[in-house]
């Protein structure tokens, strides 16, 4: 951009252009810069950089690395944890449990919502369950889970399933019962019944709601997982990211604590933007089942 601007001021043989023409070109340059600011990601990047600078400035002035390390110290700790501190291993541990818990939660949710669509008693059951368990933070079940499943993956998985199941079941049920009559009739007109009808008609027609459910379920699961991991390491020295944060706090490695928090945020954003947004773009947005303006970035208030 800048180079273009400098070149624009000179003609090919290096002579300066007349003043008026240069002013016009400067004007164009400013316009181009303004245009650049139309990009959301660029505006956000600039904001983020400003915040990081503020952080660095304040922490340096505070000069209390035990309470509030600088941005650079945090980044250094992050680089160190990634390179040799075993952070990737911790992330992998977290994800292994997450995938299992999320998978089971989603499967049970889909099953429950199918049951609810098919039968009246199923609807009552689902509505009763969601009314009961939705206000109950999944993490509150952890003590009970520890009692039942002991100190280990089982407990965390149980809590995760609980965190994913209800929001996903709620969305899935809303989605399935919202499939319009015309599309249902079209499916049955061409002889679709049973599982083929579900796969070819119900699931794609309810996909916008299903995707919202999966997104919310992921957000709940991720927060719950980190919270649960804070309580104990799965097997000695091999906990997830939550445990990494807790351990480093115990050892007063505060920059590493910050690094752990940044990792949690970064993974959260990455999954939201890279996975769910991509799925949305390739499905419901492409199909016109949801207009681009309606897109809400992860509207989960507080999961834990």
């Amino acid at each position: 951009m800048k180079r273009n601007g400098i070149e624009a001021g000179l003609t090919a043989n290096g002579n300066l252009l007349p003043v008026t023409e240069r002013a016009a070109q400067d004007n164009r340059l400013i316009k181009k810069l303004y245009k650049l600011f139309d990009y959301v990601w660029l505006r956000r990047l600039v904001l983020l950089a400003v915040l990081c600078c503020l952080w660095e400035w304040y922490a340096t002035r505070l000069a209390n690395p035990l309470m509030f390390p600088t941005f650079s110290a945090t980044i250094k700790a992050l680089a160190h944890a990634v390179a040799g501190g075993g952070l990737p291993g911790r992330i992998a541990t977290s994800f292994r449990i997450l995938v299992v818990g999320y998978g089971i939660g989603v499967l049970v949710a889909v099953f429950l919502s199918m049951l609810a669509v098919g039968t009246r008693i199923g609807t009552d059951l689902l509505e009763l369950f969601t009314a009961m368990f939705n206000p109950l933070p999944a993490i509150a079940l952890l003590p009970l889970a520890l009692l039942w499943f002991g100190l280990g993956n089982g407990s965390i998985t149980f809590v995760l399933v609980h965190a994913v199941l209800w929001p996903v079941a709620l969305s899935a049920h809303a989605g399935f019962s919202g499939v319009n009559t015309t599309i249902r009739m079209v499916g049955r007109n061409y002889g679709l019944t049973g599982i083929r009808y579900v796969l070819a008609i119900l699931i794609p027609a309810a996909f916008p709601a299903l995707l919202t459910g999966l997104r919310n379920g992921w957000a709940f699961a991720w927060r719950t997982l980190i919270a649960a991991e804070l309580v104990f390491g799965v097997s000695a020295g091999n906990g997830g990211i939550g445990w990494f944060i807790y351990e480093n706090k115990q050892q007063l490695e505060i920059p590493s604590v910050f690094a752990g928090l940044i990792t949690v945020i970064a993974i959260g954003i990455a999954v939201e933007n890279l996975i769910f947004d991509q799925i949305e773009r390739r499905t419901v947005l492409k199909w016109g089942m949801k207009s681009a303006r309606q897109v809400t970035p992860g509207t989960v208030k507080s999961a834990v």
């Binding site: 319009n180 015309t182 599309i183 009739m185 079209v186 007109n189 061409y190 008609i201 794609p204 089942m289």
Partner: peptide, 16 residues
């Protein structure tokens, strides 16, 4: 499928 219906509603097409 020996009796195919055409509906009034535009959403009889599968949007996906």
């Amino acid at each position: 499928p020996d009796r195919v219906m055409v509906f009034q509603e535009f959403d009889q097409l599968l949007p996906w």
